[in-house]
Design a protein around this nucleic acid. Structure first.
Length: 273
DNA sequence: AACTATACCTGCAAGC
DNA sequence: TGCTTGCAGGTATAGT
């Protein structure tokens, strides 16, 4: 489900609800998630801790505790983070529930269980955790020079390259399709032949599209909702994703759908190279 | 080494 | 109506 914009919207919604709150207790469904749930660390470092702030990093939500521990949440494809009065009955697929000091409960719900919950204990663990990650799309590190150097000699298609979190974080299957359409570059283009100017264009349109998507509250295809239970509206602005056999909004040719690295890929064969 | 296919899981829509 | 099939926003790992 969630790529950078969706996680960012959830993060912004959670900040006012979680900042300064103490976690009194938690419960776990015992269902297996993508990674083992660190029960011991949750008991020792998260239970009883006070939330200092909430941050998005890549597609992760980071809840920083005043004791230095960090609760790291990944939403996978169908993960949700919502607040409920603690008396509200738990829903199907509520896997972790954190009881707060204001009578409310933060609940991680994830039907497909591709999400994960982790606990980092200090800055050292945090650095190690993110050491393999590429730059944030909005950071200075995401530059044409950087991409040019990462791409040298690689014949990997640009679509797969941009979805690799070691190259750049946060870009998933919806937005990569939109970014390549906006940059007028075919998703199959080998990265070694992308020019410096084209990388710069990719950077520019990536930031523009991700920013617009955040402003629209994210993209809801089937089940994404923000921390307040509301859907996003960027799906109304998608130009290629999900538009197989529809007319290109620019040139009226038909949008084509293929599969790359196992993922649905949409593009206009005329506009994109 | 570089790159792709597969596996993980549930829910839903389409087709028969 | 009910069954089967395919597909879905992610990513670690196995395999070529």
């Amino acid at each position: 489900m969630p790529e950078l914009p969706e996680v960012e919207v959830i993060c912004r919604g959670l900040i006012p609800q979680l900042s300064g709150r103490k976690i009194i207790n938690f419960s776990y469904s015992s269902k297996k998630l993508r990674l083992p749930v660190p029960i011991k660390r949750l008991h020792e470092y998260i239970k009883g801790a006070t939330i200092k702030d909430v941050e998005r990093r890549a597609k992760y939500l980071l809840l920083h505790m005043e004791n230095g521990a960090i609760l790291v949440i990944h939403l996978g494809m169908t993960g949700r983070m919502n607040m409920f009065p603690e008396k509200t009955p738990r829903a199907k697929h509520d896997h972790l529930c954190w009881q707060l000091d204001n009578g409310k409960e933060l609940r991680f719900n994830d039907a497909r269980r591709f999400g994960s919950i982790q606990v980092l204990l200090d800055q050292g663990e945090e650095e190690a955790f993110f050491s393999a990650c590429g730059p944030e799309p909005f950071s200075r590190g995401f530059s044409a020079v950087y991409l040019l150097s990462k791409a040298t000699k690689k014949k990997q298609p640009i679509k797969n390259f941009l979805m690799d979190s070691r190259v750049v974080v946060g870009i998933g299957n919806i937005y990569v399709n939109e970014i390549l359409f906006a940059a007028k570059i075919s998703p199959t283009t080998p990265v070694k032949i992308i020019t410096r100017d084209q990388w710069q264009e990719i950077i520019t349109v990536s930031r523009k599209i991700l920013k617009q998507a955040i402003k629209s509250g994210g993209t809801t295809i089937s089940d994404y909702i923000n921390s307040n239970g509301e859907p996003g509206w960027f799906q109304l602005k998608l130009k290629v994703y999900g538009r197989d056999k529809e007319k290109c909004l620019t040139c009226k040719n038909l949008i084509q759908k293929t599969v790359m690295a196992g993922r649905a890929t949409f593009y206009c064969p005329k506009c994109q190279n």
